[in-house]
C-alpha cells in the first residue's frame, strides 16, 4: 500500500482523539468541584501525557495495517517525537501543580507518604533516563540490545506507576467505569508489548531461514542470502525492509532493521546488504553459511508505484543504495522500461557499492546514472563533491521533474538538503519518499 495523505490525516486525527480521551472521560459526570484553572490544566497535562505514553506501545507494535500506509520508519520517528512531547506534558503536570499550589509538594515528600514519594520520584527519574538514553544512546556507548531492554522496562514502569498514581489520587475516577477505562487502557498497552515481544517472535519461530551465501562487497559491506527452511519464504515490495535476527532465537532482542537488496521477483532467497557501521553490523562478515536466521516483515512504504508509466528518480548517498538496488533488480527482472534516474553520491570509485552492476543495469534499463564522487580519481569528468542543489539542478531538468516519484535515502545531512529542495521544485509531498538509516 502506498503512503496516502488522506490516510495519514485519519490516523493523526484518531491519535489526537485517543490522546485527549482520558481527560474527556475524567470530565464526564459525576465530577467533584473544580479547583483552580492551573490545577485543572496541570492535571489534564498529566492525563494526556500518560495517554501518549500508552500509545507509544501502538507506534512500536509493528502493526502492518497502520505501517502499510504510513511507513514503519515514519511511525518510529513519530514515536521518538511523541516520547519527547509526553516527557514535557508530564514534567508540566508536576511543575505547574506545584507552582499553582505548593501543598502538592507533599506528593514528593517522604515524610508525608514514603512509598508514594519514592514511586513518584522514581518515575520522574525514569522519565529523564528514558529520554537521555534514547537521544544520546550512542554517546553513552550503550548497545542497541541493552537500550531496547532498558527502554522497554522503563516504559512499562512509567505507565504502571502512572496508573497507580491516578487510581491512588482518585480525584476524577470515583466511579467504577472510569477506573475500568484506565485499567483497559493499561492492559491494552501491556498486550501490545506482549504482541511485539512474544506473539510476533512465535510466528517467526515457525518460519526460519538459513544463510545460504555470504558475499563481500566494496566498502566493508556484506551481502547475506537467506533461504527459507520448510516454508515458501517472504513476499515483499522492492524498497521495503525487515527486522533480521541472526544466529539467535527470535525472542532475542538482537534484532536489526535492514532493507532488502535482492529482487522482489527472486522467490528462492532474499538478500540484505549490510555495511559494517555499528556493533552488530561489524560482526556480519563473520557469519557462517548455514547460520539460522529469522525475518520479521516486510515493512515500509518506501516503494515504487506499481504502474510502470511512473518514473523514478533516486537521490542516494552511500549505503542508502541498498533499497534502490532491490528496485532496479526488480525492474530488470520484470523487463520494465520506466524512466529511471539515479543520482548516487559516494566517497570514491573503490568504495562505491554495486558500481559494476549499476553500469550493467544502465544498458538493460531506461536508466540515467549520475555518479557524484567526493574523492574522484585523476581525469574524472563526472560530478564531484557532495550531492548539492547545483548538481541536482543540472540533472533534474523539467523533463525529469514531471511525472516521477522521488526516492531519497542516505546520510542525514544529504536528506536535510534534498527533501526541502524537492519541495521547492514543486514536487507534491506524496511523490517524495524518503528513508532514513537511523530509525532506531
Amino acid at each position: 500500500m502506498k503512503f496516502s495523505l488522506k490516510q495519514a490525516a485519519v490516523w493523526i486525527t484518531l491519535y489526537v482523539i485517543f490522546a485527549a480521551a482520558p481527560i474527556v472521560v475524567a470530565y464526564l459526570s459525576p465530577v467533584p468541584n473544580a479547583r483552580s484553572f492551573w490545577v485543572e490544566f496541570a492535571v489534564g497535562l498529566g492525563f494526556v501525557g500518560l495517554a501518549i505514553m500508552g500509545f507509544q506501545f501502538v507506534l512500536t507494535g509493528r502493526f502492518k495495517n497502520i505501517a502499510a500506509s504510513l511507513g514503519l520508519d515514519s511511525m518510529l520517528q513519530f514515536h521518538r517525537q511523541a516520547g519527547q512531547i509526553a516527557f514535557f506534558f508530564i514534567l508540566g503536570h508536576v511543575f505547574i501543580l506545584m507552582l499553582a499550589n505548593p501543598n502538592y509538594l507533599a506528593f514528593l515528600d517522604p515524610h508525608a507518604n514514603l512509598p508514594r514519594a519514592l514511586a513518584l520520584s522514581a518515575v520522574l527519574g525514569a522519565l529523564v533516563l528514558i529520554l537521555v538514553t534514547t537521544v544520546w544512546r550512542q554517546s553513552f556507548g550503550l548497545s542497541y540490545e541493552w537500550w531496547r531492554v532498558i527502554h522497554g522496562v522503563l516504559a512499562l514502569f512509567i505507565v504502571f506507576i502512572g496508573l497507580v498514581h491516578i487510581l491512588q489520587v482518585g480525584f476524577y475516577i470515583s466511579v467504577w467505569w472510569k477506573q475500568a477505562f484506565w485499567l483497559i487502557m493499561t492492559v491494552g498497552a501491556l498486550f501490545l508489548l506482549i504482541n511485539t515481544r512474544i506473539i510476533n517472535p512465535l510466528r517467526m519461530y515457525r518460519r526460519p531461514y538459513r544463510i545460504s551465501q555470504i558475499r563481500e562487497e566494496r566498502d566493508e559491506a556484506w551481502t547475506l542470502s537467506l533461504e527459507p527452511v520448510g516454508h515458501h519464504g517472504i513476499r515483499f515490495t522492492p524498497g521495503q525492509f525487515a527486522w533480521l535476527t541472526l544466529d539467535k532465537s527470535p525472542f532475542s532482542l538482537r534484532q536489526h532493521p535492514f532493507s532488502f537488496s535482492s529482487s522482489a521477483e527472486n522467490n528462492e532467497c532474499v538478500e540484505f546488504t549490510i555495511k559494517a557501521l555499528g556493533d552488530f553490523t561489524k560482526t556480519v562478515g563473520a557469519t557462517k553459511i548455514g547460520t539460522r536466521a529469522y525475518i520479521e516483515g516486510p515493512y515500509g512504504a518506501f516503494t515504487p508505484d506499481p504502474d510502470p508509466a511512473v518514473g523514478c528518480v533516486f537521490i542516494v548517498g552511500g549505503v542508502g543504495i541498498t533499497p534502490i538496488m532491490s528496485m532496479l533488480r526488480t525492474f530488470r527482472d520484470r523487463s520494465e522500461s520506466r524512466n529511471l534516474c539515479l543520482i548516487y553520491g559516494t566517497l570514491s570509485l573503490e568504495t562505491t557499492l554495486f558500481l559494476d552492476e549499476i553500469r550493467d543495469l544502465e544498458r538493460t534499463l531506461n536508466l540515467k546514472f549520475v555518479h557524484v564522487l567526493e574523492n574522484p580519481p585523476v581525469g574524472w569528468n563526472g560530478e564531484r563533491g557532495l550531492i548539492s542543489k547545483d548538481i541536482l539542478n543540472r540533472h533534474l531538468s523539467e523533463h525529469y521533474i514531471r511525472d516521477n516519484e522521488y526516492f531519497v535515502c542516505g546520510p542525514e545531512t544529504m536528506m536535510d538538503m534534498v527533501e526541502p529542495y524537492l519541495r521547492c521544485r514543486g514536487i507534491p509531498l506524496k511523490y517524495i519518499l524518503s528513508e532514513r538509516f537511523k530509525i532506531v
Binding site: 493523526i12 489526537v16 473544580a34 489534564g44 504510513l70 515514519s74 520517528q77 524518503s434
Partner: peptide, 30 residues
C-alpha cells in the same frame, strides 16, 4: 513521509493537545 514533516506534525499534535487540555480545564472552571 518526510522527516521534517513528521517533526512538524508531532509538534502540531503537541500544541493541539495543550490547547484542548487548556480549553477543557477552562470549561471545567468557568
Amino acid at each position: 513521509m518526510l522527516h521534517i514533516y513528521i517533526r512538524r506534525i508531532a509538534i502540531g499534535v503537541g500544541f493541539l493537545l495543550v490547547i484542548i487540555v487548556a480549553l477543557l480545564a477552562w470549561s471545567r472552571v468557568a
